[in-house]
Design a protein around this nucleic acid. Sequence first.
DNA 1: ATTATCTATAGATCTATAGATAATGC
DNA 2: ATTATCTATAGATCTATAGATAATGC
Lengths: 196, 196
Amino acid sequence: MAAKTQFAYGEGKERVLHVAEEMFLSRCYSSVTLRDIAAEVGIKEASLYYHFPGGKEELFLAVLHRSMAAYRTGLEHAANEGRDLREKLTKMALWFLSRRQLNLQLITDSDLAEIDPSKRPEVERSAYESLVKPLVKMLSEAEAAGESASYNKEVVAGAVLNTMCDLHNAVRYSTVTSEEALTDVVDMLVDGLRPR
Amino acid sequence: MAAKTQFAYGEGKERVLHVAEEMFLSRCYSSVTLRDIAAEVGIKEASLYYHFPGGKEELFLAVLHRSMAAYRTGLEHAANEGRDLREKLTKMALWFLSRRQLNLQLITDSDLAEIDPSKRPEVERSAYESLVKPLVKMLSEAEAAGESASYNKEVVAGAVLNTMCDLHNAVRYSTVTSEEALTDVVDMLVDGLRPR
DNA sequence: ATTATCTATAGATCTATAGATAATGC
DNA sequence: ATTATCTATAGATCTATAGATAATGC
């Protein structure tokens, strides 16, 4: 009977976003149901529409843009913290490891196909600006500083991003520690596979 | 009226597998419906149960194991074709580019969570044996031949696989040609980012 | 008065089963 | 007789809307 306003004013929406972020970043758009989210938050499905009148898609987009903004800040900060290419890449890898696993291909390939086509360019732009661009910028500066050979920045940025996203799996499926996986990945990116 | 046996004996099942493979490898498990598959094949949903009595999950598992077997063959063949590490990696990258995009994280993270838990180990094993193992083997041989420094093979294999899967995106989103993306990626893997 | 929830329910979609029907091979 | 489809339909699940209800802030 009691319409439990369990959370303080404005808090409810934050909780919804937080729970939805956990789910949308680890599972695909269609496998996450409003039922799942509402149950985890502790409210009824219909209540989600109060905060997000546009329903599931609006909630997903809010989560995605919020999450991308966090990545952008985190990656730009990581790039500024490191003094050379190796350090910058290490800080970035640490940032990826500090957050829950980001399934990059899931968002850019699978999820993107399930939302309203008119919203796709915005999502692609958001992912590009927040993930690819900080890396391209860092790689360009590294090349200008003579720390990197002249590769196509976008291609390398994609490879680096996917490698970093996979760090969580490396730690999970191999017997390696996260520190070891991190140094191995950074060394491989900077020095290559061939013997030094 | 006419129960159209459009395909020759045994052909129907092959068509279903082919269509299902196209869909399951590019979209997530829950977004692919039996309706989609049946429509694309040109039969009714109920007819799918004749070939796959276990329904959607059985069809998905059949597709996945079939697809993994093809990757295993393709990658092992690629490794044998190349004479040194750089050539082997190039042949492997060409194999990935020759097939439709494989969304690795989609399968190992997202799809895996949606199937019957008792089937998961089998899927993980299939993906490991077909994708990771051929790379680990090649990297071990390269190290033994003095062509590679001593990295953790599983960690590097994951990085290489994700990088190769991403080649399709690199070509799609950047202005780069597939040849250029391929050589850049292989060069980066072998020589590293730092100037030679 | 506003904010944030709830109940109830419509309507769409999806998986799966039962049993009928037609075409093929022997 | 076997193979491969079909029709019809049950039952589950999911998104979304309408309108009621309670708690909070002024």
